[in-house]
């Protein structure tokens, strides 16, 4: 049920493959962020490559699923030393072409593609949150819900022995305002 569990449902190998196959060129949000990384100066191209790889790991972790950079490096090394990996070229991702088209426009002599829809940055729900929403929408019963007795503790509550501790702001008001009563306008 939990988000974290769903993350571990795929093998690390599958996750890294998915990660390397991800179409970075088509991801506008990533490309925008990448610009700021590319404008920095690097000692050598390897350092730059490393910065890009790290950025990808960070981005992928943030929006898809966690990628541990060090583990990924190890996996990559293992891959290259093993038999040639299957081709992971970019074109395995379907091209996303979002065009706004209305009936009346199609009749016109369009010489340019319509300006592509600004990507409204869709929130990335946790995977299992999405699954849960689908279950609820289908009216399915969500498993694992326990019945908790709605009762009051029969034992007597404990006695309080401690005096309230002073708040930091109660001992050191900043400026004259701190001591005055709150003002509320109408």
């Amino acid at each position: 049920m939990s988000a974290t569990q769903s993350h571990t449902s795929s093998s690390p190998d599958a996750i890294f493959r998915e990660f390397t196959a991800y179409n970075w060129d088509k991801d506008q949000r990533f490309q925008q962020g990448l610009q700021s990384i590319l404008t920095k100066s690097y000692d050598d191209s390897a350092k730059k490559e490393e910065a890009i790889e790290k950025a990808k790991c960070f981005y992928y972790s943030k929006f898809f699923r966690p990628i541990n950079y060090l583990q990924y490096l190890k996996w990559k090394t293992d891959q290259s030393s093993a038999s040639p990996s299957p081709d992971m070229s970019n074109d395995i991702m379907p091209t996303v072409a979002s065009q706004s088209s209305t009936g009346e426009k199609e009749e016109k002599n369009d010489i340019l593609p319509q300006p592509s829809e600004q990507k409204v940055s869709e929130p990335q729900y946790p995977r299992s949150f999405q699954e849960l929403c689908e279950m609820v929408a289908r009216g399915e019963e969500v498993p694992g819900i326990r019945t908790i007795p709605n009762k009051i503790n029969e034992a007597p509550p404990s006695e309080s022995h401690l005096a309230p501790r002073r708040k930091p702001w109660e001992t050191k008001p900043e400026g004259a305002e701190g001591a005055s009563a709150v003002q509320t306008a109408d």
């Binding site: 706004s100 010489i111 340019l112 319509q114 300006p115 829809e117 600004q118």
Partner: peptide
């Protein structure tokens, strides 16, 4: 936005929808 240089005048037809969308 950019449009083909040989019909440069159509610029508004392509720039306005982007500005509206934004």
């Amino acid at each position: 936005v950019g449009v083909p240089p040989n019909v440069m005048g159509i610029g508004p037809a392509y720039a306005i929808p982007v500005a509206l969308q934004r």
